[in-house]
Amino acid sequence: MTVSPAAVRQRPAKPHPRLRRVGWILGAVGVVAIYVHAWRDIGASVGALVSGLGNLGNLIHRSVPPARDVLHASISASIVTLDTALIGTTIALFLSLLITPFAASNLSPHRLLYEGARIVIAFTRTIPSFIFALYLVTVVGLGPYAAALAIAVHSVGTLGKLFAETIEDMEMGPVDALRASGASRLQVFLHAVLPGVAPAFVSLTLYRFDVNVRDSLATGFVGGGGIGFLMFTSIQLFQYRAAATELLVLLVVLLAVERVSTVLRSRIV
């Protein structure tokens, strides 16, 4: 198709961009200012990094060879870490299944219940599990139980949010069909919603378990036990050879968990 010169003349002119350009310049200046402030705030300096490289060599020297005598303790502490993540994730799975029907906007029976569920999810999701652990060790005492509870509380938020989003994205047809036949909300949820989202829920939970194994290291630092606690202690006591062993065991465990979680998830979806 050819365009006549007359038609070209009729095209609207590009709106004058002066105001937008001023906006861009102000924005760029603002971003640079934030970076300058942040760099100074953390006391960052290239010189400190270069002159500190010697310390790094020293650190590596003091870490080899890894200590053999803590191998057994490292392995059993790793299992405690896995147990913490397992129990925490499982508790979170059940709690988030209870909260999800209210937190999905397309299923929630009432606006207030929806808002309430969303507040619970936002609160638990925003606060990291090791912060919850700091409080929970004073409730149930030091150790992995507090860590598992902390992980459970935080994961209710993360899982609940992902579950609710999965339900909001799902195909609503079968839900309408069952509602139309006179099924109750609970029946619709169990027979039309869950079958549709179950594979996604399992996959999200496996992924969450993988993340929670790493989270339970951080809860270990604040008194939640497991391999995280062991490493924290070794480093505080300058036992770098023990820390090296623990780090190696940790690496193997984390890689194994990630691998298993990935393989299982690829089988499901």
Binding site: G173, A177, L178, H191, P195, G196, P199
Partner: peptide, 10 residues
């Protein structure tokens, strides 16, 4: 329904 709307995984 036009789109049939069976529960697919059942």
């Amino acid at each position: 329904f036009q789109q049939i709307h069976l529960v697919r995984r059942r």
